[in-house]
Design a protein around this nucleic acid. Structure first.
Lengths: 210, 210, 210, 210
DNA sequence: CATGAATGAGCATTCATTCAT
DNA sequence: GATGAATGAATGCTCATTCAT
């Protein structure tokens, strides 16, 4: 009987946990949407609540305060990058250049689907607490890591020059982010695919062994 | 006698004008310092006044409101870039590659002297009014223009590949800005001069004729 | 069960609505009191909040801003006139002269109970927005209307001279308001009842058929 | 020689005094104009200075502060009434009714030439200090006095009923002021002359011996 | 769990007044 | 006498956060 009770408790806990996760996601999506569009400071908690179709008070049950919510939003965005990049690299096969291209391509594509969110990341990172800032720096490095490995493979394979991989990876991410940061300009004369193609050509030329 | 009066009036006007300029600069410097450090929204007008050693009210005599002050700060930063780039290019002589390098180098150096200000530019541009936004876009394009001309010269001289100059120039500026944007990371393992050298090598490789 | 739910919802809505009305009244009374005494511009929202025993922020949940609050205060006063005049006329019976007197009398009595508020109306109407101004003009005309009808009845009955009723009614209201406007003078040598009696005698003489 | 010096001093004093009076008038006219149009609180001292074509500082040399300026403006308006009424009465001849009419007529005419100023008087009197308030009450009574005398003459002559003259005079002034106070309404269907004629008919009927 | 009424600290902005020139 | 740059107190309004229901 004690076992049955445990089981019931576990089931309820699981159900509860699922509901908690659903609520968190609901709030996070609303917050991302509103903050990306309006900016962090100009976004009222009420606006997030309205967007999520819940009350203000409930947000505080899931995220301690506004700053924490911002941190969660930014982390959520960065986690998306971190998770998608390795998968895309794997799908690309074994060729280092193709793996490198896949990494750049996926970054650009993710940026394109959440242009406002990427801009939010650049705008509001400094708003975060030291702790939050550390977390997003860590996430950015985690995102960079698989790309760095791809580059190192390429160097080992003799297709990429032996320059500081950290710089190369930074450039990859930066150029991808630029699709959001400078979209007001570059978006006027290039489509996403053209941008990817032309920027990747430049990137590749910059690192390829002659 | 009328002439003497005119002269006196002119002198007073000149003195007044000089004082106005001095005050504007004083406020602008204070605002740049405080806003760059603290961010626009977290900066109280009182803090700017304190930093400038004047009263709040006086700020409003020179800049209509807080938004206008931000616009002036950002414009002031961008004008610095716009003015320094062409001069540096001229000083570099006739060789397209050297002129290109000079352009990149000056951008990085200016970024380095005002890292916080550059970050402010990225953070707060969206805060501006549509009108202010147009102005800074215009300034950014004005800054880009002389670099674009240098690139075109290089293409004509057969040293640079004939790719979209707008993209190349954007990359130049972006990488320079990255010294501020990603300083938390790259600043830990590279000095400014190392950064300039290595990033320029990548840039050059990306566009040089094989 | 759905019915029970509906009922519960309805009850809660009713309770909420009642609370909203109570709050509005509480704020309105406090604002009327403070503004009438101190004048609109010299009244700080904090003073209204203090008087009402609530926080400043709450005022803004019920009235959008200070101007709206003033408008509501003035409208509230005028609505009192508009509502009391017809009732008093009805109570007066059928005789046109007695109905006319009842109208004048009630106006004076209401003025007397809210002398400061009436003065506020004269002082601050111009402060209102065009829209608010229209509303109070409309209310004033609505108040005048039943008195005008009484006068017309009197004309039809042959007891009042056939002069412009609009002017007569304006005089009625004006003389009633004067009990507030000129109270510093007339209040020193007449009681309210004496004022009503003597002024009504003058009014009646001015319009009675010889 | 001492005499010559005295003379020169006197002349200079007179000249100075004249200039002082001119300045006072200049500022007073500007203040009346701007305050009447905009209202006291919404009028900035700078606006008065601009209108007068002088600097803010100078206003403070002639009127101690903003409240004093308002007092001076209101007093200036009321003095106009006080001075014009007796003159008009004298010009009207000996007949009590005609003298009475002349008094009412001049009041209405003066009101008409300075409608905004009269409204200012009603709006802002309460803003004045106790002292200022006393002064304008005194002025209003001084204005009323000659009209009261006219009424008393009429009573003595047997043409006016022996009712409280203070009340009659108050009504006279009130109805005249109403041309400003209620101009938004009455101004739409009557000209000044029609207003004077019809209102005087009512006034006369209210007091004439049957 | 969920609500949203209530709080009150915080800040941009204005403007009467002063005073060095 | 005249100026207007400079001051800083005063105030309307917002919005993150709490808590009774």
């Amino acid at each position: 009987m004690a076992q049955a009770l445990d089981e019931r408790t576990a089931k309820r806990a699981a159900r509860t946990d699922a509901r908690v996760q659903r609520r968190r996601r609901q709030i996070l999506d609303a917050a991302t949407e509103v903050m990306s569009r309006t900016g962090f400071h100009a976004t009222a908690m009420q606006a997030v609540a309205d967007r999520a179709g819940i009350s203000v008070g409930l947000i505080y049950q899931y995220f301690g305060n506004k700053d924490d919510l911002l941190a969660a939003v930014i982390v959520d965005i960065l986690e998306d990058f971190r998770d998608q990049v390795p998968a895309a690299i794997e799908r690309a096969g074994d060729d280092p250049v193709e793996r490198f291209e896949a990494a750049f391509r996926i970054c650009c594509r993710v940026v394109d689907t959440k242009r406002d969110a990427v801009n939010l990341t650049y705008r509001e990172s400094r708003t975060l607490s030291a702790e939050g800032l550390e977390q997003i720096k860590r996430l950015e490095l985690e995102t960079a890591e698989p790309i760095r490995l791809v580059y190192d493979e390429g160097v080992a394979a003799g297709v990429f020059r032996d320059v500081d991989a950290r710089l190369v990876v930074q450039n990859v991410l930066l150029v991808a982010h630029a699709w959001a940061l400078k979209h007001w300009h570059v978006g006027r004369f290039l489509t996403l695919e053209q941008y990817i193609e032309q920027e990747f050509a430049l990137l590749l030329a910059s690192v390829r062994v002659a």
